[in-house]
């Protein structure tokens, strides 16, 4: 049976795709870029949704994985462009699939280190320790001059994807959109698996999970690391979209924004992050045209959403989450 939520999900995905294609037909490159931004931010928040929505791990430092992905694209791409070898004489690369792999692996390493220490704590300590780790790497990126330091690193030519011209806005949108759909599909598969059920139990009640023989720690750590990997791939795409990567991708504002996307869209819903990203980018764009004080009004909208409209966009469109 097709539920109301899936109808809404399909409509949202098709609307984004249609918007980009319509913009291409109308020759409005700017709107393709907006749609691409929605897809990429949606993917980053989808990654976080695995930890935060499904696992209940309120990571306030996920921007660090977004930034790691961005720097993977920037560093590999710039070495491929200049031809200089990296450390250990490794070659750079401008192939997106390879860059995504490197981004995901680097984020996995960072995710294991951060996760092993952070997941020992819970509640407000977890929020703050993830924030602190993100700040640590943020300051590292700022003070490390090899790849631009505070000024960031420009990517002169967008990295390549086999069989597509990534410099064409619609092609790059389709790659990003495909990545978003793949990310959402991974979450859907994980949620329906034995692992997903275990994660759900751990989120609801760790003591009961332990009592039925599920050790909460590895389940939470796995969710955290997988979540970091997905967000890192989004970071690599984001760097390619802007053809620029800077420490601000790792700032705590970015971490906050990723959480905001999930809440605007609807926590723990598969298409929530995408809906939230769409709403966020549209608010930013439309309010930004009306007033340069748009952040003030974004703050008000966010405040009202948190205080009075817990379900976000999907809660509004598709009704409350069914428990069970």
């Amino acid at each position: 049976m097709i539920s109301r939520e899936w109808t809404v999900n399909a409509a949202l995905a098709l609307a984004l795709l249609a918007a980009a294609i319509a913009a291409e037909a109308a020759g409005q490159v700017f709107y393709i870029t907006l749609a691409t931004r929605i897809a990429i931010l949606g993917l980053a928040a989808t990654g976080l949704n695995l930890a935060l929505g499904l696992g209940g791990l309120v990571s306030f430092g996920h921007a660090v994985f977004f930034g790691i992905g961005g720097y993977a694209a920037g560093i590999l791409g710039s070495h491929a462009f200049s031809g200089d070898p990296m450390i250990f004489g490794l070659e750079g690369s401008n192939s997106m699939p390879l860059i995504w792999l490197v981004a995901a692996l680097a984020a996995a390493v960072a995710g294991v280190v951060i996760g092993v220490i952070s997941i020992r704590t819970s509640g407000v300590y977890f929020i703050m320790i993830t924030l602190a780790f993100a700040q640590m790497l943020y300051y590292f990126a700022i003070s490390w001059p090899a790849y631009g330091g505070e000024d960031g690193l420009s990517i002169f030519v967008r990295n390549a994807f086999p069989g597509m011209n990534t410099m064409k806005p619609l092609s790059f949108f389709l790659i990003s959109f495909g990545a978003l759909m793949a990310g959402i599909a991974i979450l859907a598969v994980l949620r329906g698996s034995r692992f997903g059920s275990a994660l759900d139990v751990v989120r609801q009640n760790e003591v009961r999970a332990a009592a039925v023989g599920i050790n909460p720690f590895p389940v939470k750590l796995t969710a955290f690391v997988l979540s970091a990997m997905i967000t890192a791939v989004a970071g690599a795409l984001y760097a390619d979209l802007n053809r620029f990567v800077s420490p601000s991708m790792m700032s705590w504002h970015m971490s906050g924004e990723l959480i905001v996307l999930i809440i605007l869209g609807g926590t723990g819903r598969l298409f929530g992050p995408m809906a939230g990203a769409a709403l966020f980018v549209l608010i930013e764009h439309n309010l930004g045209e009306l007033t340069e004080r748009w952040q003030f009004f974004l703050g008000l909208i966010l405040l009202v959403t948190v205080l009075f409209a817990r379900g976000g966009v999907l809660g509004f469109l598709a009704g409350k989450v069914r428990h069970g």
Partner: peptide, 29 residues
């Protein structure tokens, strides 16, 4: 604002106070 958040979980508190930062910063500017 804050009074409505005491009974909420930490996630809501983080978000609502994050929203307050945006409002305060832009308002001061």
């Amino acid at each position: 604002v804050i009074r409505r958040l005491y009974s909420r979980d930490h996630l809501d508190q983080v978000l609502a106070t994050f929203a307050l930062i945006l409002i305060f910063s832009e308002g001061t500017r």
